[in-house]
C-alpha cells in the first residue's frame, strides 16, 4: 500500500510547481506549531472549517433559529404578538397536521423502498455491463437532470383521466369508461380501489398520492443509481468472483457479499433519502397544482407548512409546524444512526 501511495504522491508532486507545495508545507508547519502538542490539529481544523461553518451559520443555522423564534408568535407583519407555545399545541391538536404527517410517512416509505429496489437492480446490472455503459448511465440519469416542473407537466398529460395516453391504452385493453382510474385526481384510497371496496375509502394512501410516489421513484432513481454505482465500483472484484466459484446464486451473492460490502453507501443513502422524503415538496406542487391534491389527499408536511406560510400567511404557525417536522426528522435520523448504523459492515 505505501508503495502505491508513494508513486501516486510523487506523480502528483512532480507535476505541480514546487512553490505551492512549499507554501502548503510552511502553512502545515505553522498550523501545527500554533496548536502545540495537545491541540495539534485544531488550527488546521479551524482553517478548513471556517468557510463552511461561517456560511452554514449565517444561511443555515440563523434561519433555523429565526424560524424557532418566529414560531412563538401569532399575527402578521407589524402586528405580531408573542404567543408562547400556542402554535405548537394548536398544531398537535389539529387533524390536518396528523393526516399530513401520515401522508409524509406513506410517501417516504413508498419512494425509499421503491427507489432503492429499482436503483439497486439497475445499478448492479449497469455495473456488470461490458458495452454501452456510458449510454445507459446517461439515459437513466436523464429524469434527474430535468427540472421537476417540466417532468411533472409531462406526467400530468400522460395520466390525464379522460385524454391521457395511459387511459387511452386502458380503453383499448377493454376497461370501461366508468372504471378508468382518475390517477392524480383520485382522493380514494388505493387499497379501497384495488379490493373493490373491501377497505374503507380513507385507508392507506390515496391513488393520487401513489402517483406522486411513482413519479418520484422515476425522477430520483438516477441520483441513487449514480451513488450506488460509485459504491459498487469500490468492491474488490475478487470477492465476488470467489462467491461465484463457491456456487453462490444471484440472491446469495447479493445478500452475503454485495450488500454487506456496500452497506456504508446504502446507509448514507438511507439517511439522506429519509431527510429528503420528509421535505419533499416540488413534485407534489408541480403534479397536483397546489400540492394538496384532491380532497387534500396528497398534502404532506412540507405542503402543509408551505400553505400556512405563503397561502394563509400564518408565519408563526407555519414555523411551528416546521420545527415539529425538524424534530421528527432528527429523531428518525438518530434512530437510524443507532439501529441501522450498527448493522453497517465495515472493512
Amino acid at each position: 500500500m505505501p508503495n502505491l501511495m508513494e508513486s501516486r504522491a510523487l506523480g502528483w508532486i512532480n507535476r505541480i510547481p514546487a512553490v505551492v507545495d512549499t507554501v502548503l508545507a510552511v502553512c502545515d508547519d505553522l498550523l501545527e506549531r500554533m496548536g502545540g502538542n495537545r491541540l495539534r490539529d485544531l488550527p488546521t481544523a479551524v482553517l478548513l472549517l471556517l468557510p463552511s461553518l461561517g456560511l452554514l451559520g449565517v444561511f443555515g443555522l440563523l434561519p433555523l433559529l429565526l424560524a424557532v423564534y418566529l414560531s412563538l408568535f401569532t399575527g402578521k407583519g407589524v402586528n405580531m404578538q408573542f404567543a408562547g407555545l400556542a402554535n405548537y399545541t394548536r398544531a398537535l391538536s389539529s387533524e390536518e397536521f396528523w393526516s399530513s404527517l401520515l401522508n409524509t410517512f406513506y410517501y417516504a416509505l413508498g419512494t425509499i423502498v421503491g427507489a432503492f429496489l429499482i436503483s439497486f437492480v439497475i445499478a448492479s446490472v449497469l455495473f456488470r455491463l461490458a458495452r454501452g455503459r456510458g449510454f445507459f448511465r446517461t439515459v437513466y440519469f436523464l429524469p434527474y437532470i430535468t427540472s421537476v416542473v417540466a417532468a411533472a407537466t409531462i406526467w400530468r398529460v400522460l395520466l390525464h383521466p379522460y385524454a391521457g395516453p395511459v387511459n387511452v391504452l386502458l380503453t383499448y385493453v377493454g376497461v370501461s369508461p366508468e372504471n378508468l382510474p382518475r390517477w392524480l385526481l383520485e382522493p380514494k384510497g388505493v387499497l379501497h380501489l384495488l379490493t373493490n371496496g373491501a377497505f374503507p375509502e380513507n385507508w392507506g394512501p390515496s391513488l393520487a398520492l401513489c402517483c406522486v410516489i411513482l413519479f418520484d421513484i422515476w425522477h430520483s432513481s438516477g441520483f441513487m443509481i449514480v451513488i450506488l454505482l460509485a459504491g459498487l465500483t469500490a468492491i474488490p472484484r475478487e470477492l465476488e468472483e470467489a462467491a461465484v466459484i463457491d456456487g453462490a446464486g444471484w440472491y446469495a451473492r447479493n445478500r452475503y457479499v454485495i450488500v454487506p460490502l456496500i452497506s456504508p453507501t446504502i446507509f448514507f443513502l438511507l439517511i439522506m433519502s429519509v431527510i429528503k422524503a420528509f421535505q419533499a415538496f416540488n413534485s407534489f406542487y408541480a403534479l397536483t397544482g397546489d400540492g394538496r391534491g384532491p380532497y387534500d389527499s396528497t398534502q404532506n408536511m412540507t405542503v402543509y407548512i408551505f400553505t400556512n406560510l405563503y397561502v394563509y400567511q400564518r408565519l408563526g404557525y407555519g414555523a411551528a409546524v416546521a420545527v415539529l417536522l425538524a424534530v421528527a426528522i432528527v429523531i428518525l435520523t438518530l434512530v437510524q444512526w443507532r439501529y441501522v448504523g450498527r448493522k453497517v459492515h465495515y472493512e
Binding site: G60, L61, L62, L64, F281, I305, L309, A322, V330
Partner: peptide
C-alpha cells in the same frame, strides 16, 4: 452542520 438540513428550504426562505 447536519442540523442545517433538518428544516426545508420553504421555511428558511423568508429568514
Amino acid at each position: 452542520v447536519l442540523a442545517t438540513v433538518m428544516v426545508p428550504f420553504e421555511v428558511t426562505l423568508i429568514p
